[in-house]
Design a binder for these strands. Structure first.
Lengths: 130, 130
DNA sequence: GTGCGCCTTCGAGTGCACTCGAAGTCAAGC
DNA sequence: GCTTGACTTCGAGTGCACTCGAAGGCGCAC
């Protein structure tokens, strides 16, 4: 961790630690346009992650781990990068994603119920057997 | 659909229709050992899916769409195929899966909340702007 | 000043779960 | 008897999201 002009910045290893991603994945995301901007560099050429970077990466992580494809995260990043004026589009993208996730959650919950039922059967069987 | 000796059996296309899988996937599952037995064949060599087959395939679908890897579905199928006596193992496998799914659901729900929050922000912004 | 470790880029490799195509067979309708 | 279309097998191809390895550079501790 290094502090310059009142700003705390992290090395890629520290950023990986902080976000739960690997250094490989962080570089991959940057290469693939999922980050808002190229991450700042130290004079040595090493990446220095700012709080803003970390915040954005956490958002990306939330989108990813709710199943949004890389491609779509990139679209969202593109919109945010483009600056003010496309909030409606961003909203639309997020709402569409939310709806998909909600539906997915409901479906998984239903399937889970059926599995729980099966578990109930086995529990009764192994109980009476023991 | 064909009826022989009081039994209704389905062609692979009908089974695909009934389960929401493709014919390719049905053959793939069979090849990969996810089904309990090789599906019966008509004299022509064409597959004939029984009700039992369909029921099992639906169970496989539930496991798969809750995120169980193919490999693990196969393990479960292996246990069921082996017959009576390993109910405890089957139970263990299903319970482990259930717990993973529950945790996954909780995590996704948390991420979803954060996304909803973001949506709330954009909604207020686009409202006041309009 | 040299070893060490973390960093860099680039491109190739991995694992998963399908997904597809080619080439051939079979039964039914015309 | 010939076309049509659904079926068969086999193996290769696809898409996604990483994941890894090689080869080299920089700066700090000793």
């Amino acid at each position: 961790m290094s502090v310059v002009t009142d700003r705390v910045t992290l090395s890629i290893a520290e950023a990986a630690e902080a976000t739960g991603l690997t250094t490989h994945t962080l570089r991959y995301y940057e290469r693939d346009g999922l980050l808002l901007d190229a991450v700042d560099r130290a004079s040595s050429g090493h990446r220095r992650y700012s709080d803003d970077d970390l915040g954005w990466i956490r958002m990306v992580t939330r989108l990813r781990s709710t199943g949004m494809p890389i491609r779509e995260v990139r679209q969202y990043a593109d919109l945010v990068r483009a600056g003010d004026g496309n909030e409606a589009e961003r909203l639309q993208l997020l709402v569409a994603h939310r709806d998909r996730v909600r539906q997915q959650l409901a479906e998984v919950a239903t399937h889970l119920d059926a599995i729980e039922l099966k578990i109930g059967l086995y529990e009764r069987r192994t109980c009476t057997k023991a």
